[in-house]
Design a protein around this nucleic acid. Structure first.
Lengths: 230, 230
DNA sequence: AATTAAACTTACTCGTCAGTAAATTAATGA
DNA sequence: TCATTAATTTACTGACGAGTAAGTTTAATT
């Protein structure tokens, strides 16, 4: 296999040819740091893809390294160890969901409308590269410290859902229900997407989300009334 | 750790003291076979519990053997190998779900009512010892043959759900919806229970199921009409 | 040009664990 | 009582893979 050193090659900043000889060295230092960040991110993404494809335990760090044209010790150079790598994948995924909350949170109207938006973003995140890791990052595979942090992050998402449900019950946009179990059910359905969604599926993430939301909002029983879905 | 040879000790048939000397040998042969089956089942159950507690890859066959007071090669004697063990756990779990379909299937009334029954049984199965294995038995951890059989069994359950949904749409007990996505959503929510349900939870499986069903049947949006939940 | 630090590699160690060979003990049957 | 088969063990092999030590090349700093 060709050692392309693609980690470096992939670098978005090309080795600037006609470099202006001595601008503030700060710029270079910052650029270097950014570069390092990009390489790290590439490694993490490659890991996420490998984990999703083969599972955490069936993926060796040699695999991950090879996927990006590099050798194992470099993985240790950029990321602490295998657990840390999984953890980073997890965090990247969670960040996307947190972002979904962020944007939906102050998008006015009813709590139900906001919830629906969160769910759409949630589904989008789950189908992405990091969805699998986010959903399957097992406490079991992480030491106590990381496991605790994972639980913490998961719990925050859960609490976010429950808060929206309670708000909806209060503003009348959501039927009275058990927020805890409802949040579990909704999150579970969405998380599960990571188990079956594989790349080229018939439906786009947005379409999947729409159908899920249809079920959650309207329910299975026929309705005499006809509330808007969102 | 005390080697109690509990696999033998646990045997439900006690070493009959006042044995009637020579009844038909068939009885003994049958009893022996049954005994073997029981030991095998005990191993499989122990494995399921260990897998759930520590994950498949963090559980060694020595662990499983020790859990039942026996040594590793005996596991190979009763079950082929580690994959096979996981597969058996999976099958045991699936069998429970299949049973839920069986009993619900001819329990009359509307398709929606039957579906609700299936879901209750489904939830019960997921919270049991084999729920975890059933939900997480990764194709990834099984060779092509077993993986295919797992997929087949999963697909059968999925088809069962879709069939009920279609029947409900036809008999008018279920609002028109996309059966495939709806089945995915419902199954996902239930499967996910295996991720968070741990032994002594506040709610019984039946209560959890009831709340989930409440969501699926009635939806989040308030209703002007008031259909029965089941 | 000399010094230092970062990026990256080769070549190893070391533990764990699935799986097996070969022996031993207990049970069944003739 | 002897022979055969099943149940169970001890004691191993062999591979794989996480993690590391120590080196080499490349780039930044003075």
């Amino acid at each position: 296999m060709l050692k392309t050193r693609s980690l470096t090659a992939k670098s978005v900043t090309p080795p600037r040819r006609g470099r202006p000889p001595s601008l503030s060295p700060w710029r270079d230092a910052a650029a270097r740091d950014a570069e390092r960040g990009r390489k790290r991110a590439a490694l993490i993404r490659a890991a996420a893809q490998a984990f999703r494809a083969n599972g955490f335990h069936n993926t060796s760090l040699d695999d991950v390294a090879a996927a990006v044209g590099v050798t194992k010790p470099l993985v240790y150079h950029y990321v602490g160890n295998k657990q840390q790598l999984l953890f980073e994948c997890f965090c990247t995924g969670v960040e996307q969901i947190r972002a979904a909350f962020e944007t939906a949170e102050h998008s006015g109207t009813t709590a139900r409308a906001r919830l629906v938006r969160v769910l759409a973003g949630y589904a989008e995140a789950i189908t992405g590269d990091f969805g699998w890791c986010m959903v399957r990052a097992e406490d079991l595979d992480l030491d106590a410290t990381l496991s605790a942090r994972v639980k913490q992050l998961k719990s925050e998402i859960d609490q976010g859902l429950r808060r929206l449900l309670r708000a909806g019950i209060e503003d009348g946009s959501i039927r009275s229900c058990d927020p805890k179990m409802t949040a579990f059910a909704v999150a579970g359905a969405l998380n599960w997407i990571a188990h079956w969604h594989r790349g080229r599926d018939a439906l786009t993430p947005a379409e999947i989300a729409a159908r899920f939301i249809d079920l959650f909002v309207l329910g299975l029983a026929p309705r005499a009334d006809r509330p808007r879905r969102r």
